[in-house]
Structure formats: C-alpha cells, structure tokens
Design a protein around this nucleic acid. Structure first.
Length: 325
DNA sequence: TAAAAGGAAACCG
DNA sequence: CGGTTTCCTTTTA
C-alpha cells in the first residue's frame, strides 16, 4: 500500500484515458455454443507488458510540477502512451478536458502537486466507480466473493487487452486475492500476473483511501465528493433496465458512442450500438447470453407500463422515456 | 437483413 | 409475484 499515489497515477495515465470507455467491451463476446459463460474472443493485439508506466511512481511523487508544466504546453499529457494500439478508439474521451488544461490559471506551483494528486485520485475514483456500477461489485476487493473476483478479472483483462487468466484464479475470494503477493500472481499467470496485481493494488489503495476519507476528516474534498455522489442505483434493489439505460445516458463520456440522447428534454434517445448496449446489460445482470433481441423485448414490455415508448416519428433504435427527468 | 412488435412460457430474487 | 429472459412468428423499413 506504500505506493498508492504512484499506482493511482499509473492507472490514471494508462487506465482512465484508455480504459473505461464503451469500447472496452467490444471484444467481449460470449461463446455461442456453451452459452452460459463469458468468454474471450482472442485478442488480436499482442499483449504488451508495458500497459502502464512504472516510472510514473516517482514522477507523481516528486515532479508533479513538471506534469503541470507539460500539460500547460500540451493538454493531452494524459495520452502520452508509448504504444497505443487502436488509435481510432476514443476521440471523445478528452472532451471533458477538465483539470489538466491550459485553463488552469495562476502560476501557484506550490499547489500543483496537491492539485495533480487530487485530480489523479479523482479520475481513479471515477473509473472505479464506473466499473463497480457496471459489474455490480463493491469498490473494496476485500468484500468480493468468488463471482465478484471473476467479474473483476474479466473486466480488467478486457480493459487492458490481457490474455484470459480468470480460470487460474478460480475459487478465490477477494480476501484471498488481496492476501496474494505479486509473486503469487505471477505464478498463477506468468503473462499478466504482475499487471493484475498492480491493478488490484490500485483498487486496494483506493478502498483504503476511501475509508480514510470517510472516517477521518476531509483530506481531499474533491475526491470524496465523488463517493458521496451515491446516485440512483445504490438503493439495494436490483436495477431495472430503464434505470440502467438512464445511467448510460447520463455518462456520455463513457457510453456516448453506444447510446446517446437525441433530445434530452423529451427523453428521446438512440441506441447507436445495439450489440454493445446488450453486452453491458448482460454483464450487469449476469446474463451472458443477453443480446439486443432480448433487450429490446424487455424495452417493449415498458410500452404498456408507460415507462418507455417509441417516439412519434418512429425510427430504428430510437426510443423515448415517457417521463423525462 | 436487422429491427420492430408482441404472444407465450420459463426464470428468478 | 413482478420484472424480466428466452424463444418464437410475423411484419416492416
């Protein structure tokens, strides 16, 4: 846990900007024959070991001012990945553009380390929160059951285009996982054990920080707000499809390419990538065989309930919430 | 050819 | 039991 800030910085550079997008599941396919289990389509991209920048550890700790300086010159500092495969992947991502942008006024270099750190932490928190919602797991790995662990593994593997190692971590709870050393990880998965271990470490660190934040006094207020953001779905009850669609629509940053508003005020939205939305829904509900045919049938059930309808001018893949927010 | 529509039955928390 | 999920046939764009 010693290198938490460094690790957090790592995932921010290589995680949030490349990871938690709708594209991360595009290679997630189910095995049509076995039907009941998520499976991998073999990633065509070679599994590069250098998915994160180890040296950023030191960078974040000692030289954050440098980072800010660089970012002033180039707002895209967070996308300096040495080898990005699929460069067409995510032009949308930087649209948020908050934080590391030239707009940051004032030359208060003393504050910059803190600023960068809390920004980094904030990004990680956001991404972890997104993943938690999508997978319906808690942010704290210690609380994961065997199924949660498998979901997390699958998610992380897809996110970083790792070869499938889930089976070698069978029957492990989150507690087991947390107790494992990097060596243990490497033993179970020589190819990507170290990467998995590093990412688990980030989750552990984040959970640990979160606990510190909520129990103790507000050390990093910006970051804490993100956790208290406890929105809609945290009510305990199983999520409804219409709620899930709303959540995706509320995060255009993450899902804008698979589902988006055509007219937010009227509640009209379009499913741009039906297969992808269905996969996300299946992942959320633990229905590996979910597809658009079935998802759309569920949407149609909403017609008579007055939750969703077809818009006045019916278009393919376009629906409308009867009661817009 | 994919999407839309809706009946029928199974499933599941 | 409600809310899907699954499977299916027919129609539409």
């Amino acid at each position: 846990m010693s290198n938490s800030i460094g690790s957090l910085a790592e995932i921010t550079v290589y995680g949030s900007r490349t990871g938690m997008q709708e594209d991360s599941l595009t290679i997630l396919e189910r095995n049509r024959d076995s039907g009941e289990e998520w499976d991998l389509v073999e990633a065509k991209t070679s599994s590069m070991p250098g998915l994160y920048l180890p040296c950023f550890d030191m960078l974040a700790m000692e030289d954050a001012a440098w980072l800010v300086k660089v970012s002033e010159a180039s707002p895209n500092v967070t996308r300096m990945e040495p080898h990005r495969e699929e460069p067409e992947q995510c032009p949308v991502i930087d649209s948020q553009g908050q934080g590391l942008s030239p707009g940051m006024d004032g030359p208060e270099e003393e504050r910059s380390l803190e600023q960068v750190q809390s920004m980094v932490v904030g990004e990680v928190l956001k991404d972890i929160e997104t993943a938690c919602k999508l997978l319906n797991i808690t942010p704290d790995p210690m609380e994961w059951n065997v199924g949660n662990v498998q979901k997390w593994l699958l998610w992380t593997e897809h996110l970083y285009r790792l070869p499938h190692a889930g089976r070698t971590f069978h029957e492990l709870t989150g507690k087991d996982l947390c107790a494992m050393s990097e060596e243990d990880f490497r033993q179970r998965s020589p190819q990507c054990g170290d990467t998995l271990h590093a990412h688990l470490d980030i989750w552990k660190s984040t959970a640990w920080m979160k606990e510190r934040c909520t129990i103790g006094d507000n050390k990093s207020p910006g970051a804490e707000d993100l956790w208290s953001e406890a929105d809609s779905s945290c009510s305990g009850q199983p999520i409804h499809l219409w709620q899930f669609l709303r959540e995706l629509l509320l995060k255009p940053h993450n899902y804008g390419r698979c589902i988006r508003w055509l007219n937010k005020d009227k509640g009209i939205f379009k499913i741009e990538d039906s297969a992808h939305v269905a996969r996300l829904w299946g992942l959320r509900k633990n229905r590996p065989a979910m597809n658009y045919d079935k998802l759309s049938r569920s949407i149609r059930q909403y017609y008579k309930k007055g939750i969703i309808r077809k818009p006045d001018v019916s278009q393919r893949l376009v629906y409308q919430f009867v009661h817009p927010v």
